[in-house]
Amino acid sequence: MTRGLAARAAAVYLALRAVSAVIVLLAVNDQVPVESWTGPDVDYVDMTVLWDGSWYRTVAEQGYPRELPLDPTSGRPSQNAWAFYPLYPLLARGLMGVTGLGFPAVASTLALVCGLGAAVLMAGLLAERVGRRVALGAVAAWAAFPSAVSLQLSYTESLAMLVLCGFLWAVMRQRWAVAAGLALVLGLTRPIALPLLAVVAVALAVRWRRRRECPVSGGEYLAGAGALVACAVSGLTWPTIAWAVTGSPTAYTDTMAAWRAGGEIVPLKPWLWMSEWVFRDYELAGTYGPVALAAVVTTIVVMVCGPWARALGPELRSWCLAYPAYLGLVLDPFTSIFRYLLPLFPLLVVLLGGGWPDRRPRFLGWRTGVLVAAGVVGQAIWVFELLVFVPPSDYPP
């Protein structure tokens, strides 16, 4: 990757973070002060520790509970810090010790810097497949995405994106040992590590097919197997640590269930329930919802599998299939789903028309401008509707 590409990607990212900062500042007046989150007066830095940011602050300042707190009514584990992965808050804690600054300032700055690194890596790995212009357009659309505001809040999205982009670049270059190490790091960053297994499996299959023209050494066999094992281990690392500390083998899953409808993790069904809820004002909600959900799934599959995405290569395409499938199995599609869409950045290349292997994208500038403008409008909606909370229904614990 050239310095010029890196500089342009950094400039695009920082410019759009400045836009996001303005939106957050405009929302300050709408945020009701709550002492457990903001103190008596609300400013920009206070806005960065709302919602999940407050949990990461708890981890950074107090650590994790050795015993799971129980709900007095149901007797089940209640919401607690074990749902939040440790790498980001522990890095923030270390920086707090070095700088003497408080969590809000340190954590939001850490997120901003990690997002900058992710944007630069993203531009580099995409440029190798689809060219510099499309890569920069995709970085701009990603940095303007409605939930991209979280890249400068006290959330783990930025760090996870940095590690993910590094992992995908390593796999694309067949640096199996590097990919294995980054997979293990991602397993302590966000609960999105298991789909990496499919990406490595596809990459290894592609490498195996090329073995006659480029023989595979014994060391490469071993490194590839190590990458597969590391991806599997990374998805189990944090639940295992939670078990070891609390003594409960289901500490992590019980904690995650505390945030779910009905207090349990049910694969796939929550997506059906949510699709019907979206159309709840219509008599045929039970029909419209599933049809709309099927349309979303079909759209993703068509976007990834069509010739318009061939230039992305098998690694990025497999990620864009494995990751949504994983979300369907483990995630309830509520407000956090918008942040979970950020790792699907390769699909932006398809929307820009840059995924054809033998065609130059048409109207690239216009397409990029439309996606950026729509994203900024979406950011305003995300901030005022989801980041700002309205008591008492949204009141924090």
Results as ranks from 00 to 15, higher is better:
284 L>G: 05
114 C>A: 10
8 R>M: 03
330 V>E: 00
250 T>R: 03
148 A>P: 11
196 L>S: 01
7 A>W: 14
91 L>V: 08
174 Q>V: 00
121 L>D: 03
46 D>T: 14
60 A>W: 11
111 A>N: 02
205 A>G: 12
219 G>N: 04
163 V>I: 15
73 T>N: 15
198 A>W: 07
121 L>Q: 05
24 V>M: 00
10 A>Y: 10
46 D>R: 14
290 P>Y: 08
245 V>R: 12
321 L>M: 05
214 C>N: 13
359 R>L: 11
95 L>K: 03
169 W>M: 06
300 I>L: 15
318 S>N: 12
19 V>C: 09
365 G>K: 02
118 A>S: 14
21 A>T: 10
97 G>H: 13
187 G>S: 02
274 M>D: 03
341 L>A: 15
262 G>V: 01
147 S>T: 12
394 D>N: 11
304 V>G: 04
97 G>M: 14
370 V>C: 01
224 G>F: 15
274 M>A: 06
144 A>E: 04
161 M>I: 03
174 Q>D: 02
345 F>P: 01
75 G>F: 04
204 L>D: 06
236 L>Q: 13
125 L>K: 05
65 P>C: 05
195 P>S: 08
255 T>H: 06
149 V>T: 08
273 W>R: 11
361 P>I: 08
253 T>D: 13
204 L>V: 09
220 E>S: 08
364 L>D: 05
322 A>S: 08
365 G>E: 05
170 A>Y: 00
76 R>I: 03
22 V>S: 09
286 G>L: 06
205 A>D: 05
320 C>N: 05
87 L>D: 08
115 G>C: 02
5 L>T: 07
260 R>G: 12
204 L>H: 08
37 W>H: 15
52 D>I: 03
316 L>H: 06
138 A>M: 11
86 P>C: 03
141 A>N: 10
196 L>T: 07
50 L>C: 09
20 S>P: 07
276 E>F: 01
290 P>V: 04
390 V>G: 00
334 F>M: 09
367 R>V: 07
23 I>K: 00
365 G>N: 04
89 P>K: 07
172 M>V: 11
77 P>S: 05
271 W>F: 07
193 A>S: 13
62 Q>P: 07
7 A>N: 06
265 I>E: 05
288 Y>M: 14
